[in-house]
Design a protein around this nucleic acid. Structure first.
Length: 242
DNA sequence: AGTCATGTTGACGA
DNA sequence: CTCGTCAACATGAC
């Protein structure tokens, strides 16, 4: 569920409620529920893995973490975290972190850090990488302040696409390669979105969960790399360690 | 049936 | 103060 592209899909599915007022708000989220009633949903935005339901003067931030799910116009057998009823239907959210952000949403987010946002700034991301030369690229790709929206699947697929070993230190990676990584972080996210919408995402994985390299057929390494210790799938024959 | 995972935060101790 | 480690959250795929 939770990488950036999946949140874009959630936004698109919930867009039908924009312009409608909340009739009822329910669930065990620790927010001021009565405050939501009779408020019009003005817009839905995303910043990386954050889903942002914008109201006048405040925004509900939803983060699905690892297990979060949602249903549109239906419910499921689980504890309801946040349910919003509109005159034209309802949104039900489960197992998510829900928080209210006060004031102008633009004051809370730097949109240029979001790899899928129109304002994505690749140059700024590369500068952040060169500022942290000792960081492993597997950790850097998961840094939401640098590559907002990138998750572990995208990390593995991007590094495989650009032939870079996940344990490479950013300071050792040539500038041209860093640009390729940043470029592919965005490109792969949009491929992910397309394939997820088609229901063919897993079919298109070349590295993530793979036993053998799709290029040279040697066994893939599966290791928990970097300070974040997240699963990395890589081919030491095809991916260079810088 | 048990293990593990597309994620993040906060507590605690060194 | 900063770093590393761990628990917590709680569901679904294999």
């Amino acid at each position: 569920m939770p990488e950036g592209p999946s949140i874009i899909i959630a936004k698109e599915k919930m867009a039908e409620f924009i312009g409608y007022k909340v009739i009822a708000a329910a669930g065990n989220a620790k927010i001021d529920m009565p405050r939501l009633e009779d408020k019009k949903l003005l817009d839905i935005k995303t910043w990386g893995k954050h889903l942002l339901l914008c109201f006048e003067g405040f925004t509900i931030r939803v983060h699905f973490l690892l297990f979060g799910t949602y249903r549109i116009n239906e419910t499921k057998e689980a504890l309801l975290r946040l349910g919003l009823t509109f005159s034209n239907g309802e949104i039900n959210i489960y197992t998510a972190a829900v928080k209210v952000l006060e004031g102008d949403i633009n004051s809370h987010y730097n949109w240029s850090a979001d790899v899928m946002h129109p304002q994505w700034n690749e140059k700024a991301a590369i500068e952040k990488l060169t500022d942290k030369p000792d960081m492993m690229i597997c950790d850097a790709l998961l840094e939401q302040d640098i590559f907002s929206g990138v998750g572990n699947i995208i990390k593995n697929e991007v590094l495989y696409r650009v032939y870079v070993h996940p344990e490479s230190r950013t300071g050792n990676i040539p500038e041209k390669k860093l640009k390729e990584i940043a470029d592919q972080a965005r490109k792969y996210s949009f491929d992910f979105l397309k394939w997820k919408n088609e229901g063919t995402l897993k079919k298109h994985w070349l590295a993530h969960t793979k036993k053998n390299c799709s290029r040279c057929d040697l066994p893939m390494y599966k290791e928990y790399t970097g300070t974040k210790k997240r699963r990395s799938f890589f081919c030491t024959n095809c991916q260079e360690l810088y």
